[in-house]
Structures are given as C-alpha cells and as structure tokens.
Design a protein around this nucleic acid. Sequence first.
DNA 1: AGCATAAACGGACCACGGTCCACTTTCTAT
DNA 2: ATAGAAAGTGGACCGTGGTCCGTTTATGCT
Lengths: 207, 207
Amino acid sequence: MNTPVPIAGESVERCDAARNRQRLLDAAALLVAERGPDAVTMDAVAARAGVGKGTVFRRFGSRAGLMAALLDHSESAFQYACMYGPPPLGPDAEPIARLIAFGRARIELVEVQGELLRAAESSVETRHGNAPRQVSLIHLEMLLRTIGMGARSRLLAHSLLAALDPGLILYQWHELGYSLKELADNWADLTHRVVTGDSLPSTEYST
Amino acid sequence: MNTPVPIAGESVERCDAARNRQRLLDAAALLVAERGPDAVTMDAVAARAGVGKGTVFRRFGSRAGLMAALLDHSESAFQYACMYGPPPLGPDAEPIARLIAFGRARIELVEVQGELLRAAESSVETRHGNAPRQVSLIHLEMLLRTIGMGARSRLLAHSLLAALDPGLILYQWHELGYSLKELADNWADLTHRVVTGDSLPSTEYST
DNA sequence: AGCATAAACGGACCACGGTCCACTTTCTAT
DNA sequence: ATAGAAAGTGGACCGTGGTCCGTTTATGCT
C-alpha cells in the first residue's frame, strides 16, 4: 500500500505530496501516542504537521481514512501472518484451528489498538467497506469454505466477523468487564459450534 | 416508558415540558416522513417544533436519544410480541423456533425502519448500551439458556446479536445486494448451527 | 393572590469534520 | 531555460452535534 512505484501510465506521487503525507502520519502517530486517539482531530494533525487542513483531507479523505492509514502497518502484518505466517494463524494449520486463531488474534489486536480500530470504522461509509475488513471477510469465507460450509460461507463469514467488531469487543471488555480471554474463548466456542453444527435444511423454519 | 405517573417522592414532568416533548416528537416524525432520517437535524427539529435547540437536548440528550424515542412505540410492540405474543415469536413456541423468529423479525424491522434503527445506534455511547438492545440481549440469553447453552449463553447472545446489527443488515441489503430473505435464512442457518453444534471443551484450542 | 423556588427554556457559543477555490509548486515537453 | 499543464496547498467557510448560562415560567405553599 502507498507504494510510490510508477505503474505504467500512472504518474508517481509528487515529492512534496509524499513528504506531507509522511509529516501528517508522524504528527498523527505522535498525537495518538501522547494524548490518545481522541486527540487526533484534523485541525490538530494539520497544525502539528505544519500544513493546511485541506491537505489532510486531500491525502486521507476523512478522519477514518487517516486512522486506517495509521493502522496500515499492523493490518498488513496481520494479513501476511494469515497468508504466509506460522500456525495456527498461517496455512500450515487445520482450517478450524486457523479460524479460531484468527478471532483470537483480532481480539488481541483490540487490546493494543482497539480505539484506533474503532475510530477507523467510525464513519458510516468506512464502517463495512474498508480494505482490511474486506480482507478479513475473504479470509474467513475461504476458511469456512474449506471446512465445508459451501455456498453459505460468505454470509456466515459476515455474521462471524460481526462478533469481532472492535467496538463490540471494547464494550464487552471495558464496559461489561469481560476479560479478553473470556471473549477469545467465546469466539472459539461460537466458531466451533458453527462449524460442527448441522446445516439447516433450507425449507425448515422458512416463513 | 415516558409515563408521567408520579412515583412516590418523584415529581411529575412539568406540563409545558411534556407539551414540548410531544411537539418535538411530532416535528421529528414529520421530518422523517417527508425528508427521511438524514433531514432530522437538531436545529431543524427545534425550529419545526417552535422551541429552542437547548430544549431538544434537554429532552432527549442527543440525536441518538431522539431517534430512540421515535422508535419507542415499535420497540415496545416488539418486546411485547416477544413476551406475550403469538408463536413463533411468543412463548407458545419451541425455543429454537423463537430464536429464529426473533432474528427474522429484527431483520424485517430493518426493512421499514432501518435508517432510524441505525441512527439510534450511531453514537458511541448509545451504540451498545441502549435499552432496546439490552432487552433483545436478555431475551436472546434466556432463549439460549432454555435451549441448554448454559453459562456461555450471555456472550453467545452478544455474538449472535451482532449479526443482526441494523447497520450490517442495511449494508448487506443495500450495498451488497442480498435480499432480506437471504439474510433471514442466513440467520436461521447460523442459529441452527450454533444451537445444534457441540460445545467446545474449554481446554481445547486455548492459548 | 402573592411568593419562593426549582424546573424549563432559548439561542449564543464552541469544536469538529468536511468542502471549496484562488493561489503555489512541481513536473514535463520543448 | 522556460512555459504550460497538472497536482498540490492552505485556510476561510459551512453545517452539525453538543454545551452553557442568563432569563422565563410553572407549581406548590402560605
């Protein structure tokens, strides 16, 4: 992501633009570090980076986009771990174990970056359509399909992923007092039940 | 809800306050009807009702609170249907059928009031803690417990309820093009799998 | 009726996300 | 080197949710 490599017919990002992007990311990261994600207002980031507010929006589109950019590294690393990393997350493990490890890893991610993850999904447009979420969705679907969930895999993936929503995890953790271990165990239980449960004959219970 | 019955030691709402609350609700409902939920800004509602903006906040606390108030009738009716209504939603049906009917009914509610439901849950504070959601959660938990999910019922209820999130349903329906029937069938499949699946031995797959 | 008091009111005010557009800087072709 | 085009910039501006506080009004008591 953000690679300034010139693709055929596609011009490279102007160098002042690239410099400002980096300044903005640094400023934002600094603000997160010293005053928490809530302090990352677009004005503050712009001021801190010494650029105009318009530039922040030109580069990142929205506050959610800026947050997503801050998470880019960790999301890429996560994706890599899912695709090429060691078991139980990576491909050298049984699908069910990978499924459970996936949720566990997402929950652990919330532990350190929860507020950022929530902020990145805060706007209505980026809520469900953002890139990392798509990746997670496809990954989940693939695992479910491998396990034998068939055509229902995609919607099942949506439903399961909803249980890993950073906002929900944070709520369960901070407001309700569940430990992250309990939540991870609940994920394991949920997915295990789903995966080992019978498929529903399509006529039963239909309206 | 909103009953002006004087409880011992607790004074009744002042009559001008009650009148203004009604005016505001009427104005908001009117705006929703003629220009959609997005047109329900706090200023617009205040102007339409002929009161000051501060009054809107005093009565409903926030935009989400106002939206929740607009949904009060339908949420109460839904709750009543779950507790005392006819099968398959009400108590005269098997728990599994009730569970499936519950989700189906929530999804159908999204069909007509989706944007309002989403707006009522839009703010971070009201996202998970609002009253109707609590009711749904308790109801789900009760059903799961009846079915024999034991101690895990509460967290399982949280996870299942996440799959019925109005924002998610709207996204799947409008952006991804799924029909509400497909979504309802997916719910039925999901819950059926969860309920008939094996419980996970607590040591397996743990970190 | 008159009064004291607490509740309710209203609209000025603030912070923030987001838009816009006149101006500046970089790039590229000559 | 230079000029024109394209990309980038900055900050004034806007709409919105939410707060605050001086003023008004309903209500219960005498």
